[in-house]
């Protein structure tokens, strides 16, 4: 299948008072039309920075990117500013974690949708308003004809996120980046929103990059998953492979950290330590200081090895058998 979005060797640098630091290193990621790909990792692993870099939303005064993000034959990272503005919202869209603060509190939701339509298409106000009601119907907002006049604070969190999705998809973009779209929602609403994203992606052939720290969300929604740690992809494979037979100790650790009913009498697992700060990255494997399988060889830089349609950034993956989701279940 043709790639809708192909990110190649993306690196992101930030200027800080202490000098330039690298937040994302050499990241590659491909999403096909109609496919939902997960990007998982802890807070601080660089997922959101990756998304903002692809969208060109990082402040240029303090950041710099290299690599490419191909949307069809256009490289978003090399696009002239005015053409990038036109591509955003029309060819590639993004939804955010907190739908309350992500919507403009001072404008009616109908107007927030129609202005998006009119920014990209020469249509009348009337046609744009009709389009707004139709997309709100598509995202399952009850009573859309009346709700267009509502302000964001008059809607629940789940409804606001539906509105965000409507805004993002109203121009039927080829690619949607969803950055923790369900993190701030109730579990039941979370499942509805994920279901909606999957349904819309299938119906319109939208390629979706789903960013989350929750492998449970990935398991429910995605076909493939990229695990990200400290600014690098450490593992890339199908969701089944990742869950059943992870090859990177970090992916395995994330799986162990999912609370599960059958482990209810045991203490919750957490990966010891935290993501290293950008100013103090280990020179070898970046996960090495926190890894229970670390050995002398891990002090060297680890390349991302590709084999059999999956990739892993761990020199010891051949010798390790790591626990996945199944190993926690009583066998």
């Amino acid at each position: 299948m043709a790639a809708a979005l192909e990110v190649r060797n993306l690196s992101v640098y930030f200027q800080t008072p202490e000098g330039e630091v690298q937040a994302v290193r050499d990241l590659s990621l491909t999403v096909a039309a109609g496919e939902i790909v997960g990007l998982v990792g802890e807070s601080g692993s660089g997922k959101s920075v990756t998304a903002l870099a692809i969208m060109g939303l990082l402040p240029p005064s303090v950041s710099r990117t290299s690599g490419s993000a191909l949307l069809g034959d256009r490289d978003l990272l090399a696009l002239a500013p005015d053409r990038l503005v036109k591509a955003r919202g029309r060819d590639i869209s993004m939804i955010f974690q907190e739908p309350m603060t992500a919507l403009d509190p001072l404008f009616r939701i109908g107007d927030q949708i129609t202005e998006t339509v009119r920014a990209h298409h020469r249509v009348s106000r009337r046609a744009a308003a009709d389009r707004a009601i139709r997309i709100l119907t598509d995202v399952g907002l009850p009573d859309p004809a009346a709700r267009v006049r509502a302000y964001p604070h008059q809607l629940s969190g789940g409804m606001r996120q539906r509105v965000m999705i409507a805004i993002a998809l109203v121009s039927e973009p080829a690619v949607l980046i969803a950055d923790e779209p369900t993190t701030s929602l109730d579990v039941t609403v979370q499942a509805q929103i994920l279901g909606l994203l999957a349904e819309l992606s299938r119906a319109h052939g939208t390629a979706v990059v789903l960013i989350t720290h929750d492998l449970g969300v990935v398991a429910e929604t995605c076909s493939r998953v990229h695990t990200m740690y400290a600014g690098e992809i450490v593992e890339e494979c199908s969701v089944d492979e990742a869950l059943l037979a992870p090859k990177h100790p970090y992916t395995s650790g994330l799986i162990q950290a999912i609370p599960r009913a059958e482990k209810r009498r045991q203490p919750l697992y957490s990966i010891p330590g935290r993501v290293p700060p950008l100013t103090a990255m280990p020179s070898g494997c970046r996960f090495e200081p926190r890894c229970e399988h670390a050995s002398e060889s891990c002090r060297a830089a680890q390349p991302l090895e590709r084999r059999d349609g999956r990739a892993v950034r761990c020199g010891r993956h051949g010798e390790l058998t790591l626990p996945g989701a199944a190993s926690g279940v009583d066998q």
Binding site: F96, T101, A102, L103, D104, T116, H120, M164, I167
Partner: peptide, 13 residues
């Protein structure tokens, strides 16, 4: 703020 980022993400001038 976040909502201004959304406006940029949806392609407003």
């Amino acid at each position: 703020s976040d909502h201004i980022r959304t406006l940029r993400a949806k392609g407003l001038s």
